[in-house]
Design a protein around this nucleic acid. Structure first.
Lengths: 134, 134
DNA sequence: CAGAATCCTATAGGATACTG
DNA sequence: CAGTATCCTATAGGATTCTG
């Protein structure tokens, strides 16, 4: 049994992103386009590929497909194929995906409270660039 | 006054990522390497560049510098330069950065509860790939 | 030590055209 | 409609070398 367990040293040195306990979930939930997609599905309910495409105006079908596949694989989104002519495919958020709602609300709350401070900091940083000790 | 306000249509069609209320904060908090860096600073306190570099074993100095600058600009991390020979620079998390702790805890909690389900879904998806209606 | 500078490559993602 | 296929480019990030 013990032999199959990675040592502390190995588990720490292997992948530093794993040393950060939230790193795995960040890849799942916060990779590019995932939050706008999940948001759209959560906000407007089950909808077709083309509806999503129109809502996320700047996304290309290729990328939308990639992201939806990933979300489907991770169990956050469900895909339903209707074999009609023309074909109809609907996407909806799963229960697992919907379980992220409180987390997103928490994030929105942090943003509401602290986004101004971030903007302020950026402005200060940017305008102080001249004559700055590095 | 009304002329300077963007119309609803313009504000919706301009940037779909802005239509998702949490998109801006995702860029700030969850871009590459930021969570491991913030975690290391929060966990082990103020530390030097080389300590961070060693802790995040696979990061290169170039990228670490980039990310630290970004975090400094956003006000999440503070940089202190000691003009000595050899030079000494220390990084620490700011109050604003530390205010993310409850959010990260929430994320860790979601992971603890639901990561298994994601893994399960991935396994099911991957093993069902043969003979699958697309 | 704490980076900056330079060069290089891999890959994400865009544009376009095509299909069941 | 819901993608797939192909081609292409831009940029993030790695490797290496150099310096105050």
């Amino acid at each position: 049994m013990a032999a199959s367990q990675p040592t502390w040293e190995a588990s720490m040195s292997a992948d530093p992103e794993q040393a950060c306990p939230i790193a795995p979930v960040v890849d799942i939930v916060f990779s590019r386009w995932t939050t706008p997609i999940l948001w759209a599905l959560h906000q407007y309910g089950r909808q077709r590929f083309v509806e999503l495409e129109r809502r996320l105006t700047t996304i290309t079908p290729k990328v939308l497909t990639q992201r939806l596949r990933q979300l489907e694989r991770d169990g956050l989104v469900a895909r339903t194929y209707h074999p009609e002519v023309p074909p109809r495919v609907e996407y909806e958020i799963t229960e697992l995906g919907a379980s992220l709602a409180p987390l997103f609300a928490h994030l929105a709350e942090w943003a509401a409270t602290n986004l101004d401070a971030v903007e302020q900091s950026r402005h200060t940083y940017d305008t102080a660039q001249q004559s700055r000790p590095r």
